[in-house]
Design a protein around this nucleic acid. Structure first.
Length: 280
DNA sequence: ATGTCAGTACCTTACTGA
């Protein structure tokens, strides 16, 4: 299985290049974020013509997540357990949830397409919302893996966090001033490891950005940041055979400001070394 | 060049969010 995640920054503005990428790179499962539309506005037919099923979750022109898959999507969910809401600067369980998570079971793999809140600024209520959202994600993931320890689980998407200093090539993003690099955000990201998931791309691709701001020639200057990740459970990590960051997707006509992150998985059953080979 | 882009409504321009 070839699994990719991509913050597309509007599905309608660039459906051509998104479907072209999926076909050209033989993507089996494409998790998308920031589709920026309601389901009735999603260009399903373009994906179906290319052999993909699609599940989309969007409430308005903001946020929105989707998963396209060559295999059918089963047991679709539009939020994780305990996902907080946000409305007019108010964080909480009583505020309406935004369209920032969608999940499906595909070929035995539980895939979550996630768009973590941006945070906006360190003193904005949205920043507290971001931290609470990440803590709820950690707890939901911990519970899911406690119930199914051998589940191949992938949390993929735009985490809006720069985990390490070497992931920050943008001189305008400064510790102590900016979101994405604050210690509480980084702590919340690394705490996901205690739930049983880890970054499966970094061991194969130690450096490289996934986002370059449209403004101020950030891409030509390569002043990008690494904020899009594939976090996998043990069973998923054991299946990873390769990974890539599709940097070229930031080039050309009407690119998203993010590029796809791709992982290759070999999900065929493992040989069990504890059992003797009795048939030759 | 405080150097961009997408979506919407206050719709040929201003606003929000990123």
């Amino acid at each position: 299985m070839r699994l990719a995640t991509w913050n597309v920054n509007s599905i309608r503005a660039r459906v051509d290049r998104i479907v072209s990428f999926a076909e050209r790179e033989s993507i089996d499962v494409l998790a998308m974020q920031e589709i920026k539309c309601k389901p009735e506005q999603f260009p399903y037919e373009r994906f179906e013509a290319a052999g993909y099923h699609v599940e989309a979750h969007g409430l308005n022109q903001w946020n929105g997540v989707a998963i396209a898959s060559r295999e059918p999507l089963e047991d679709v969910q539009h939020a994780f357990v305990g996902m907080p809401g946000f409305q007019k600067g108010h964080v909480g369980d009583d505020a309406p949830q935004e369209a920032r998570a969608i999940s499906a079971l595909i070929g035995g793999v539980r895939v979550w397409s996630l768009y973590v809140p941006n945070g906006r600024s360190l003193n904005d209520p949205h920043y507290q919302y971001k931290l609470r959202w990440l803590e709820a994600l950690r707890e939901a993931t911990r519970a899911e893996l406690a119930a199914q320890p051998d589940l191949p689980l992938a949390l993929v998407g735009d985490f809006n966090i720069i985990p390490f200093e070497e992931d920050n090539g943008d001189p305008d993003i400064v510790q102590g001033v900016s979101t994405h690099v604050s210690q509480p955000e980084r702590d919340a990201f690394f705490a996901l490891e205690t739930a049983g998931v880890s970054d499966v791309v970094r061991p194969l691709i130690p450096s490289g950005f996934t986002y370059w701001d449209y403004q101020r020639l950030k891409f030509p200057r390569n002043q990008g940041i690494r904020i899009d990740f594939v976090l996998g459970s043990r069973a998923l990590a054991d299946a990873v055979t390769g990974a890539s960051i599709a940097r070229d997707e930031r080039k050309g006509e009407a690119p998203s400001d993010h590029v796809p992150v791709v992982v290759d998985l070999d999900l065929s059953p493992e040989d069990d070394d504890d059992v003797p080979m009795i048939f030759g």
